[in-house]
């Protein structure tokens, strides 16, 4: 993949690298380096609404210990966090708050919907007047974890899946394509 037009050449951040033979290999390696760093230091936001928050706490504590996978500490402010674990149901009064929290997180940001309530409304799907039928009506979700509440192992598996997803990202290539 090379630079075709002059206009595109000027727009790109790393035009020189990619215009040479093998330049894209360097970009791929750079992507891999950045993704390796990002995927191993994803810090969640302390955001717990319902029962799943207790299982989230259990994941953070002694036996399950999410720090093993780089999800080091839960931060209390969205400005220091990289991801939200929506642990519990979201209702119509809470939805604007969740949106605001999501907006405050710096890019790149990720979302895990933990538990049936966050995935689809769960036990509150039918006949409940105040629960949003799935948190993905409010913010985009990367990983869905079913269960009511999911076991800590299930959340750990979701963490690993999220790491895989982050590792597939192409940050520099994306910039070239724009």
């Amino acid at each position: 993949m090379g630079i075709t037009s002059k206009k595109e050449f000027e727009k790109n951040d790393f035009p020189v690298l990619d215009s040479y033979e093998g330049g894209s290999i360097i970009l791929t390696q750079l992507d891999a380096l950045v993704n390796w760093a990002r995927s191993n230091s994803v810090w969640p936001l302390t955001f717990g609404t319902r029962c799943c928050a207790i299982e989230f706490m259990a994941v953070g504590a002694s036996r399950h210990d999410m720090a093993r996978f780089g999800y080091e500490v839960a931060r209390a402010t969205p400005r220091q966090a990289d991801m939200i674990i929506i642990s519990g149901s979201i209702n119509y009064k809470m939805a604007p708050v969740l949106k605001r929290l999501y907006d405050q997180i710096a890019d790149p940001k990720y979302v895990i919907a933990m538990g049936a309530c966050a995935v689809s409304g769960g036990p509150f799907y039918y006949n409940s007047y105040s629960i949003v039928k799935g948190a993905d009506h409010v913010i985009p979700v990367d990983i869905y974890v079913p269960g009511c509440p999911p076991r800590p192992e299930a959340l750990l598996y979701a963490f690993l899946q999220l790491q895989k997803k982050i590792k597939r990202e192409k940050n520099f290539k994306k910039q070239l394509k724009k």
């Binding site: 039918y126 006949n127 409940s128």
Partner: peptide, 28 residues
């Protein structure tokens, strides 16, 4: 009210054994 889920309204459409399963989503 930020986590109000209307359990009391929901119970009016459920049978008694079903209500039991909603109660442990209140004070978990």
């Amino acid at each position: 009210g930020y986590i109000h889920s209307g359990i009391e309204k929901m119970t009016e459409a459920l049978s008694y054994p079903q209500i039991v399963h909603l109660t442990d989503r209140m004070d978990y």
